[in-house]
Amino acid sequence: MTFSDYLQFLLSGLTVGSTYGLTALGFTIIFNTTGIVNFAQGEFVMLGGMLGVFFLSGLGLPLPLALLLAVLATLLIGALMERLTIRPVQDAPVINLVIVTIGVSILVRGIVQIVLGKDTHALPPFTGSAPVSIAGAAVQPQSLWVLCITCGLLLLLRHFFSRTLWGKAMLACAFDRKAAFLAGIGVRRMVLLSFMISAAVGATGGVILAPLTMTSYDVGIMLGLKGFAAAVLGGLGNPFGAALGGLILGVLESFAAGLLSSAYKDAFTFVILLLLLFCKPSGLFGRRGFERV
């Protein structure tokens, strides 16, 4: 093993990790506003990719327009999901709402399977597929796109939640819905907004990942699981932690596959995750003893 091999593991891990991180980001947005863990988050990512493929090859639109439309359509689907499935039962306990999101994810998967088909598809990369060499390690240009866009989104969200009135209002809703309402915050609008933002973030992830990882109606399951693991690892509710949790998970997997055994890489990764959570139940960057209602 040479230095460039280790660098290759690291870069591969970061690419895979950013896919987990992007999904994890979506989890934190809805969790921050409603306390709901939205298990349909993986489906938002899938929808981004699959709708992108549909607009590009199904309708023959140019790539940038197709991707933009895919994100907007998913944003709309996120809004519809909140209106049709979450709002009618909004006073139910959180656990019921979580089950609702599982139902929605199965429904979305089923509809996409019937309407858009069961095949795997790939989107063309944004800027060619000739690999870029960094100190002997080869990287797809698309990986760099993914890393940059993930970082950009992360900074944007961080700014939104900590600096803007809307972001703070959304946080207040999760902390105490009633108090937020009394303080004049439109709680219902905030919940709707959180689903829309989270759907858009998921779909953005979906369209930038599809050239690299390909997409099909069932990619949401795995992404949802790993994304949730990343969000928990980073500390649920912290966007910075979620993204970093994803990257850590990806790098762990890559090194486990490269240095130990590729057959046991998932087992190895989840053992590490379990150990971390035993030592620090609130996640790496979660606040200790902080309880959300």
């Binding site: 290759q8 593991f9 591969s12 795995m222 997997e253 890559s254 590729s262």
Partner: peptide, 12 residues
């Protein structure tokens, strides 16, 4: 079966 990146294995 759901892995999206096998460069680690291929590097090895």
């Amino acid at each position: 079966p759901k892995d999206t990146d096998m460069t680690a294995q291929l590097t090895k």
